[in-house]
Computed example of a mutant assay.
Amino acid sequence: MNSLPFRRPLSAAETVYDYAYRLEKIGYDEMLIRKEILRHDSPIDLDSYRIFNSSSDARIRYVTMIHQLTPTKPHKGLVKKLAASISISDKEAEDAVCRYEEVGAMPFIPWRLSKTEQ
C-alpha cells in the first residue's frame, strides 16, 4: 500500500477530518480512507464524519470497486457486501448502492485490483 499515489501522511496542522477530506478529493475510496485514518493513533469515531455517508464520493467509489470485482453480484448482494465490509447498516448500504446506480461508476485508485484487472 506504500505505492499509492498522492500519499502524504497526516500533518501536525491537519485534523483527521481534513486528512479524510483530502484523501477523498484525490480519489481514495471509503475503505482506503478508513484504513489510512486508522494508521494514526488518535481514537476517532469514523462514522461521525460527513465524508462517510451514502452519497459521498468515497463511498460511491468503494461501491464501484466492489461492483467491478464482482460484476455479476445482484443488487441485494452488493448491498450486503457493502454493509459487511465497512460495517454500516443495510439501510445505509441500500442508499449507497441506489446512489451508485443513479450516478454510475466513479474512478477510484485500484489498490485492490490485481495487476491484470488494472
Rank of each mutant, 00 (worst) to 15 (best):
T64M: 01
V97R: 00
I86G: 02
L113N: 07
E92H: 12
Y19Q: 01
M65Y: 11
P107R: 12
A84C: 06
Q68N: 13
P107T: 14
Y62P: 02
S48Q: 13
H75C: 04
S42M: 14
M1W: 10
I51H: 06
P71K: 10
I44Y: 12
P9A: 00
T116P: 09
A84F: 10
R7C: 14
N53E: 05
T70R: 13
L10Q: 08
A13L: 10
E24H: 04
K73H: 05
Q68V: 12
T116G: 01
G77C: 04
C98I: 11
D95F: 14
L46G: 02
D29E: 12
P107Q: 12
H75Q: 12
E24F: 06
N2C: 11
Q68L: 12
N2W: 13
A20D: 01
H40C: 02
E94R: 05
E101Q: 10
E102V: 02
S11L: 12
L23Q: 02
I37G: 04
W111P: 03
F108D: 03
R22M: 08
D57R: 12
S55A: 07
A12M: 13
D41Y: 02
G77T: 03
E117A: 08
Q68E: 15
M31P: 05
F6H: 03
A13T: 15
A96K: 04
R22D: 09
A93Y: 08
P107A: 06
E117W: 09
V16G: 07
D90P: 07
K81G: 03
R34P: 03
P74Y: 13
M31L: 15
A58F: 05
Y49S: 05
Y62T: 04
E92Q: 12
D95M: 15
Y17M: 01
I86M: 07
A83Q: 05
E30N: 06
R22E: 00
G77I: 06
F108T: 10
E24C: 01
V16W: 03
S11N: 07
Y49F: 09
M106Y: 09
R22K: 09
A58M: 07
K73P: 02
T70H: 13
S11T: 14
S56M: 08
K73R: 14
S56G: 03
Q118M: 15
A84M: 08
D41N: 04
R39P: 01
S11W: 10
E36I: 09
G104H: 03
I60H: 13
V97N: 02
H40M: 10
P5Y: 03
C98Q: 14
Y62W: 01
D47M: 09
K25D: 06
N53A: 02
D18R: 07
A96N: 08
E24M: 04
M1V: 13
L82V: 01
L69P: 01
E14G: 11
Y28K: 11
R7S: 15
E92W: 07
S56Q: 05
R99V: 05
E36S: 08
A20K: 00
E14F: 07
R61A: 04
D29A: 09
F6A: 13
R61N: 00
E101A: 06
